[in-house]
Design a protein around this nucleic acid. Structure first.
Lengths: 252, 252
DNA sequence: ATCAATCGTCCGATATTTCGGACTGTTGTC
DNA sequence: GACAACAGTCCGAAATATCGGACGATTGAT
């Protein structure tokens, strides 16, 4: 996505549309026109005009409480995307099956800019589970997927790719770069990544790479710390993950 | 969606964005810039500028063949819509289960303007099946859902709501209004709609209403003509549909 | 190698859109 | 009931984006 501090004044109207939609997405909740004004920095009359234009096209809808959110058209467009993205389409049943087999959450993540993004999330039926919303973006070093990505990269490339701020965990803890590099190397040799209690103290994720063209994607299994703890079980999980990833990797 | 013959000259830039996305959705396939120029009627440089702006924001993506299609951002927005739409969210598991139980296609349709639109489509596992893409729009009189909708409406209201052209079936056959009204009345008394070989000679659909606020929605089961033919089986299907619809209907 | 056709980018005059603010209708307070 | 605050619409001067066309890059044919 585009920086919110877009200084360019080119195509302001369209920038407004884009930033309005991004704000809606970020809030993940319907917003009032007032909130949209504040969030986008657009003047009142412009926001209203935008809302009207986009509502007419079905891009936005106004709820019974007067709040604005995405409309049907976005549903259609989003499904068009998911249908046409080869990897996503093929991955859905695979990830669903993976999730069902172990009754844990299976995810497909893709790199989007300098953040990992959850593109598919299939939950197990377990009453308490680790789960994310599709579209959630997470700094590379926080994720198991990211550790797989960085495997084999030089220190310089890694430091260039990852924004400094992303080495600080949500807990406030600073990731030690040297220890991190060592862990990445370990991950690379092992062939899969494992994180425990990193983003959240209860989350445990395993990730393996998917190779498909230039797309940088990872398949992960997520569960709560403590589950699937013994080594044999973990081997089984990793093996299943690898198999899934192999199915999805393009043979070219 | 908005008429393609929008004569208003207000906010042309945004109109262009809207029409570009609508064209992509209509074609259901990635398009070249050239095709987009032709489809939207926008000048060459404008199309390129649009593509660049929207690509930068992740709204569009360029495939390896140079064709343009929706990008990741649309996926996020679409899922936001589906997550926030109460009915859709609750309906997904219900329709999935309905589909699984009979191994037929279950759909949730909503009225969008004067057309019925498929909002959820869960396929049975059967190798040959009746199915639609989410987002497909169908004239009211062609659908079982539409017959449920019109139940109880006066002749005048119905003729005002349904565009004249929609009384002509894909086969070219003209629907006789009087027979149609009689059938609607029959449908209303029976409590569910049944269409056989209407839109397509092999499609058979059953629909029941879902009551939830002002949203006009229907649950349907679709299968090929000839299947589920005997009366007892149909009763079972209808009963299950009614149950699903009751689950989804809001108790207010 | 040359040429033609196509693809994509860039630029600036001009036709268009934006946005401050006035206006109307609605809601809530005293 | 009077008033204030708010929500949404509308307008036109001023600020801006649009699009014709020129340009360079790339491809393909001869």
């Amino acid at each position: 996505m585009r920086q919110s501090t877009t200084s360019t004044s080119r195509a302001r109207g369209i920038d407004r549309v884009i930033s309005l939609c991004e704000q809606l997405h970020l809030h993940r909740e319907p917003m009032t026109p007032k909130e949209l004004m504040a969030a986008t920095g657009a003047p009142r009359s412009s926001v209203y005009e935008l809302i009207n234009l986009l509502s007419e096209a079905g891009w936005l809808e106004t709820g019974s409480d007067g709040r604005i959110f995405f409309g049907r058209a976005m549903h259609y467009f989003g499904l068009d995307y998911a249908d046409h993205n080869d990897l996503l389409r093929r991955a859905r049943p695979v990830m669903r099956q993976l999730s069902a087999r172990f009754d844990e959450t299976a995810q497909l993540c893709m790199l989007d800019g300098d953040k990992y993004t959850v593109m598919l999330n299939e939950n197990g039926a377990r009453p308490f589970r680790i789960s994310s919303e599709v579209g959630v973006k997470v700094p590379i070093p926080w994720t198991a997927s990211g550790r797989v990505l960085l495997g084999g990269m030089s220190r310089e490339v890694i430091l260039g790719l990852v924004p400094e701020a992303d080495f600080v965990l949500p807990s406030g803890e600073q990731i030690d770069i040297d220890a991190f590099l060592a862990e990445i190397e370990h991950t690379r040799q092992r062939g899969y990544a494992l994180t425990e209690g990193l983003v959240d103290s209860f989350a445990c994720c395993m990730a393996v790479p998917i190779h498909e063209g230039d797309t940088i994607a990872r398949a992960t299994l997520c569960f709560t710390v403590g589950r699937n703890a013994d080594q044999a079980r973990r081997e089984t999980l990793v093996e299943a993950l690898r198999e899934a990833a192999a199915t999805l990797s393009h043979g070219d």
